[in-house]
Computed example of a mutant assay.
Amino acid sequence: MYKPIKGVAELILSLHKVGIRIGTVTSGWREKIDSVIKLLKVDGCISVIVERDDVTKGKPYPDPFLLAIKRLNIPANHTIVFEDSSSGVKSAVAAGTYCVGIGGENLLSVGAQFTITDFSAVKIVTHPNGQIMISFDDQHQLTYINP
């Protein structure tokens, strides 16, 4: 099954629907992320939220992503992070995650695996055997097998 993605809300809903747990790591405060989650209408889709007050060292240190990974109980190398800032990419990469840059190619120089301009080309493809393919663009795809 193929579902087109138009924006971050659609991506979150699509990943949640196929059973992929989602975490949010932000340098902002909890009240702000709660407002955004409600605005996007993705309440109940986010399993873990790490905000600035949860860690002593924020981005670019790996601490925020390491805490999210611990709370999600997923190995770092099985974690995909979407980041739009240099400090966020550095943090995600230092935590050992697979980081997709959102925005310009300048994010490649700080460790993003590749960049996309937005979520419009992202596709979620599910197979009857439980395999899920996330296609980011024509050149980048990842396969996930639901446990």
Rank of each mutant, 00 (worst) to 15 (best):
V110P: 02
L39V: 10
L67T: 04
K90W: 14
V81H: 05
H78D: 11
V42A: 09
T97A: 05
K41F: 14
E105A: 12
S91V: 01
I49G: 07
Y61F: 14
S85Y: 00
F82P: 01
V110A: 10
G88T: 01
T79N: 02
K90F: 15
V55M: 02
S47A: 15
F65H: 01
V93Y: 11
G111A: 06
V55Q: 03
Y61N: 02
S47Y: 07
S85P: 03
V100G: 11
I80D: 08
E51S: 11
V100N: 08
T56M: 12
Y98K: 09
C45Y: 14
K57H: 08
I102K: 14
G96V: 15
N106M: 06
G103C: 13
S109P: 10
G111F: 04
I102G: 09
L67R: 03
D54E: 05
V93I: 14
S91L: 00
V50N: 03
G96E: 13
K90R: 12
I37A: 07
T56Y: 15
D53G: 12
L107M: 13
S91T: 01
R71H: 06
G88Y: 00
L40M: 10
N77P: 11
A95E: 04
Y61P: 07
N106P: 10
G44T: 05
T79D: 06
D43G: 15
I102M: 15
G104D: 11
L67S: 09
S109A: 15
I46E: 02
V55L: 06
D84L: 06
V110G: 06
G101R: 06
G58D: 01
G88L: 06
D54Q: 02
N77W: 08
G103W: 13
P75I: 15
I80V: 10
V42S: 09
A68C: 09
D54M: 10
T79Y: 09
L67E: 00
T56G: 13
Y61W: 15
I80C: 13
G88S: 05
G103S: 02
V110L: 07
S86E: 03
A112T: 07
T79S: 07
I102Q: 08
D53E: 05
G111R: 07
S109F: 15
P75V: 08
A68N: 07
K38F: 06
K59L: 04
K90G: 00
A94V: 13
I49F: 12
L107H: 06
N73Y: 09
L66A: 03
K57E: 02
K90H: 05
D63W: 02
T97F: 03
Y61I: 01
K90V: 12
